[in-house]
Every structure is written in C-alpha cells, then in structure tokens.
Amino acid sequence: MRPIFVMLVTLMPLLAIELVAQTGASGPLGLDAPRLTEAPAGTPLTGARLDRRSAEVADRLRCPSCQALSVADSPTDSSQAIRQEIRELLAAGYSEEQVMLYFERSYGEFIRLAPKATGFNLVVWLAPILALLGGLALVIFRLRSARTGSSEKTNEPEADLAPYLERVRRESQQ
C-alpha cells in the first residue's frame, strides 16, 4: 500500500508537468497579462452603483463596429464584450477615467464618443459656439442696417408721391 502511495505522490507532479507541456497552457486563456497595470484609483463598486456607473462609462464610449452609436446603445457582440470589461474594471476599483484610458490605449481617442477638449479637438467644441455668435452678429448687423435704412427712407415716400399729391391738389381745386 505504502509503495503505491509513494509512487503516486512522486508521479503526480511529473504527470502534471507533462500535461502542461502538452497543452502549453500556463494559465487561463486570453491575455497573458492584465492591460491595466496601475493600482485602482477608485473604490470597488457593487450592486446598483456598479450598474449605474457601468452604464455611464458605456455611454461615453463609441461602439467600435457601429456608426455613431455608444457602447451602451449598441447590441453588437463587441459592445457587449466592452460592457462586460467596463463592469469588471469598475468592480475591481478602477476609476471611470482609468477605464476610459484603458480603452483609449487600445482603440485610440476615437473610442471616446465626445473628443477631449484639448488641442485640435477644441475646434469641434468651439466651432458651434463661434457659429452661433457669428449668426447672432449677422442678425444684429442686418437688423441695424434695416432700421437705419428704413429711417433714411421715411421721407422718400413723400418725395416720390409729391407729383401725385400736387396733381390731386390741383384736380381737387378744379
């Protein structure tokens, strides 16, 4: 009984090593190392708070395989996978910005549905305001010139009508 037990104890690690060598599996399938190496900056979330924050982050990310649709609104497999990762990262205590950066490192800034208000991106943020101000200035300019024009023209109708008024006066005298 004892020699068999000793043999099994000796052989088990060897069998395990052989199995790993055959499959080559040194760990779970997927990425070999976590992509986020820094420490979580937030607090681990659970329950309703986790649901809410996950939805908020998903709302700020662009669905990679859609046209102008957020990860939150997209039913695609890729968005579903991203939503799952968001949830896991927030549950692990990563902050919203850390999660955003995590996806940005892989996909680039395009993954953000709203571009960051820095550098050339400022054009996107400022252009509507500038266009609005420009439009407002144009309206004011047109209104003012119209008012000035109309005040200048106040005497014009009388000047134009002068011959006719004179004629009416003459005819009424006859």
């Binding site: 399938l29 997927g30 990425l31 990679p64 890729s78 892989s106």
Partner: peptide
C-alpha cells in the same frame, strides 16, 4: 477562439 473578445479589445479591433 477569443473568449469574450478580450484579445480583440486589447488590440483595439474596430472590425
């Protein structure tokens, strides 16, 4: 086979 599209996400695959 890429379970949960983890690798595709890590590589930032759009399509």
């Amino acid at each position: 086979i890429d379970p949960g599209s983890r690798v595709a996400i890590a590589y930032g695959v759009y399509g």
